[in-house]
Simulated assay, not measured.
Amino acid sequence: MRCFIVLAILFCTQTIGAQQQKLSVYFRFNSASLDSSERKKIDSILYLNKTGMNTVDIFGYCDAIGNNTYNDSLAWERVNAVLQYFGTTTIAKGQVGKAEAYGKRKPANSNLTEEERLRNRRVDIFITNDPQASTATAQTPAVPQQPSLEKRVSDSSLKAGDNLVLKNLNFIGGRHMLVRESIPAAYELLEVMKKFSTLEIEIQGHICCAFGISDGLDIDTQTNNLSENRARSIYEFLVRNGIAASRLSYRGFGSSKPMYYPERTIAQMDANRRVEIKIIRK
């Protein structure tokens, strides 16, 4: 069976130059779940490259149905599905290079037929091989443990009207798309909303680096409501994953409520570029 899959994958991958291969995995409409056939494709290309693999770059896309905010979020979920599947394999975390989502931007075709739309509902995986690359991985410094969101929400002192900063939920500068490292934090919020079935929240978006104006320019939509779009992207992510819209609302505050002012470091800019939740009902 393994031989058959390995032979099949040779026809599914594309060599980019001498050192790089490309694999595309496809998704059903409005879904970020990897079908078994697509998981097998990933298994096979990893098997073929089990020695000498240097980096893996991942790029997510959607078809043209829906708005940019929705599709950007869905494309990130597709990227995350591949990243999570990599986590069940022998691929090292340090081997993942770029992980980006383009939503319905950069379509592979005109999106006129269902077959064309299917080809746009995909994640492209680029594997770069370097037989001389060291297999040693860098040691990650220990990070102090923060209380989980679940523990913070379950704290009896938390009441309606209180705000919680969502730790590690940060965005790419000028865009309403989460940085790759923040995707697990979005899923943590989703699990908390599922567990605390009476919890109602307002999702509040904030930006950095733009004091004195009402809101920032969203590069993706070319509208001056960046903080609102950031909050809405989390709102749509939760609704798409089964949380009732009646339990959620969202609002953008621009740069009117900075955690740091003036911003003197990159870390302070990242902290101001954030999402908080306000407890409406617990």
Score class of each variant (00 low, 15 high):
S256N: 06
S182N: 12
F59K: 02
E181F: 12
D155Y: 12
A81C: 10
R39V: 04
P147E: 08
N241D: 11
I201R: 06
G103M: 03
G66N: 08
R122C: 13
A244W: 06
I9N: 06
P184Q: 11
I219E: 01
C3H: 14
N120H: 06
A99S: 14
L46R: 02
G87D: 14
E116L: 07
I172K: 05
Y250A: 01
G60E: 01
T55C: 10
K104V: 05
A244H: 07
K195H: 10
D72L: 08
A142R: 09
E200C: 08
N54A: 12
E263Q: 07
M193V: 11
I213G: 01
P184E: 13
N54H: 14
F237S: 00
V56Q: 04
N111G: 10
T198R: 13
E181G: 09
R274S: 13
A160W: 14
I203A: 03
G161D: 10
D130R: 09
G103I: 03
S227K: 01
S255M: 03
G97M: 14
N68D: 12
M53K: 06
M259F: 14
E77F: 03
E202A: 00
A245Y: 12
E202D: 05
F253I: 00
P107R: 05
R105V: 05
P147G: 04
S249F: 13
S256D: 03
S156H: 08
N67F: 10
S148P: 15
E77V: 03
S182K: 11
T69F: 02
L23V: 10
G87V: 13
S44Y: 03
A101H: 02
K195L: 13
E236S: 05
G173L: 05
Y47C: 01
I201V: 15
Q204K: 09
G252M: 00
S73M: 14
L48G: 02
S37E: 06
S44R: 00
E200A: 08
S197C: 04
R273S: 12
Y187I: 05
A64G: 09
R232I: 02
T223P: 03
I234Q: 01
A99E: 01
A244M: 09
E200L: 06
L226D: 00
K106N: 05
S197M: 08
G242S: 14
E150M: 14
K159W: 07
S134A: 08
I9M: 11
R251C: 01
T51W: 15
D220M: 03
R2D: 10
R273F: 05
M1G: 09
N68A: 15
T140A: 10
C3A: 14
K98C: 07
Q84Y: 04
F253M: 02
Q21E: 05
F211N: 04
I65H: 07
K98E: 04
I45M: 06
S156E: 05
